[in-house]
Nucleic acid binder design. Structure first.
Lengths: 205, 205
DNA sequence: CCTCGATATGACAACCTTGTCATATTTAGT
DNA sequence: ACTAAATATGACAAGGTTGTCATATCGAGG
């Protein structure tokens, strides 16, 4: 974690540094990101950087923790869900949240995708702890199986994986095209397939 | 493309260099790959490298072209398909081929994934020309719609994208776990969902 | 044997990177 | 105003990167 010296800084300066980190890490992988770039953009000296952070990893951890804070702050109200919703409704709700997040903080989204592309030891470890929401969705699927909405034969984990990988692709699409309506339609179509299948009834044997 | 000097080399030496390229580019992104590593592994001098290749890009293009050659060589016989097959059958056949490819040339698979992870101008351009098989699958889906196997409402392009993104994930899984049976089961389950849907009949409204 | 074109070589320049550290400056307390 | 601690700074070492180039070696034909 950053040093006391860093937290003693004026907020404005801390923000300057934070912003520089966001810019650098949204454009480059962790390993490719350059401290030189960050200190230049933040207008601080090399020595100061190392007075604030132990190293690049320390700096990155700080960046992530700030991002998580902001995200929690933004979504603290939207937690409850309607009892009648199916997992698909919740999925679409989650998707909308993610879209909104991309709209207001596109660079955070980029930082996330850069993480996914990074195979360094350091980043892989960080991503490991990120699988909680997968469990949550699997539990929703099980609930809907009990309710008789989803077929009992379906493996909740596999369906969850499908939904998540679709989500990832769709968000990427949105990020590059910013076509909200098109994206929604696209996603709807995919969910329609996952719900009802792609083959005709006669072929459901 | 490589120089004449390079092609005048003895086959064994050319292979030495090729192997060094494979090793380096399967472990690192194009931008992260180091010519120093390659010349060390290939046991050639720095000067020689630049006598053979114009630069790293040139070297990479050579590597890719060799890989494509090998792939064509390996799959030259398995092209025909049964007239009664559905797109899903062909999909599974394609998947099996891909699995086989990973088994015999795991490093080539790695080079491919590293490409997908690379956002450099150079690599992105290369990937652009890689979408032909997508069209092929979409055409198969259209054919099966005519045959009454796949519902007319389904968008062939979207279904193709789903199949491909699933394919990618499954191959990655196989690469890391090498669990062929598990993988086949997994894939079967996913295809079952895409064929018949995940919800119960009563919910197909 | 000798010569000339083809090929091999590693030193080098120029440019990056990270992390350290002696020194300078600012700030706070007395 | 003076002191002491906190903070800021950029030169530097040590390592990496790519691409160039003068020089050395090799090989084949005359």
């Amino acid at each position: 974690m950053p040093t006391n010296t860093f937290y003693n800084l004026e907020e404005s300066k801390r923000k300057q540094i934070f912003d520089a980190c966001v810019d650098e890490f949204s454009l480059h992988t962790f390993s490719e990101a350059s401290i030189n770039q960050i200190i230049k953009a933040a207008n601080i000296s090399r020595g100061s950087f190392y007075q604030y952070f132990a190293d690049k990893e320390d700096c990155y951890m700080y960046l992530l923790s700030e991002m998580v804070k902001e995200k929690m702050e933004m979504f603290k109200d939207v937690v409850g869900s309607n009892e009648n919703d199916t997992v698909f409704d919740e999925y679409e709700a989650m998707f909308d949240k993610a879209i909104r997040w991309i709209e207001v903080k596109p660079k955070y989204y980029q930082i996330g995708s850069k993480m996914d592309m990074d195979n360094s030891e350091f980043i892989r470890k960080l991503l490991k702890g990120n699988l909680a929401s997968l469990d949550y969705f699997a539990s929703l699927i099980r609930r809907d199986q009990q309710r008789g909405i989803i077929r009992k034969e379906i493996d909740p984990v596999i369906l969850t994986e499908m939904l998540f990988s679709i989500n990832q692709k769709a968000l990427m699409n949105f990020f590059y095209n910013r076509d909200f309506e098109g994206m929604k339609k696209h996603l709807h179509h995919i969910l329609e397939i996952i719900r009802k299948g792609s083959t005709t009834e006669e072929n459901h044997v």
